[in-house]
Amino acid sequence: MADFDIYVEHILDHYKNPRNRGTLENPDLTARDGNPLCGDEIRMDFKVKDGRIVDVKFSGHGCTISQASASILTEMIKGKPLDYVKQLKKDDLLEALGIPIGPTRLKCALLSLKVAKAAVYGLDKVRDEDLE
């Protein structure tokens, strides 16, 4: 397949062998959100100590892009200060994904970041433009 392929090895690996998958008992922070149109859904639980994310788990279901992105995001933020999540931008996550994400899959790719930010800010939902 050509170089516009998004189904590359590291993405499929995160999809098939997700890191930090599951839920946490009595999480300090938690949030969930979904894309009703495609049925993607992600929940993220955090354990926080002294402003640092000491543990994070994600659960839910959806397409390869949404789930691999959640797996990658948890690896990025585990052990980091909460401020790190607040400062993360859409492009940071897209860069970490390392594949070309067209407009049709952007919502899938960014769902995990919206959920993480919602948890950290204690919000119900984070809007797309808050990721810019």
């Binding site: 392929d5 189904y7 495609c38 397409c63 892009i65 049709t104 899959r105």
Partner: peptide, 18 residues
């Protein structure tokens, strides 16, 4: 979504979702 994406890579336009 993954089915539709991969089909699109092969020029086949199908819909996915609800």
């Amino acid at each position: 979504h993954d089915i539709a994406s991969i089909l699109d890579l092969h020029g086949v336009a199908v819909r996915s979702g609800s």
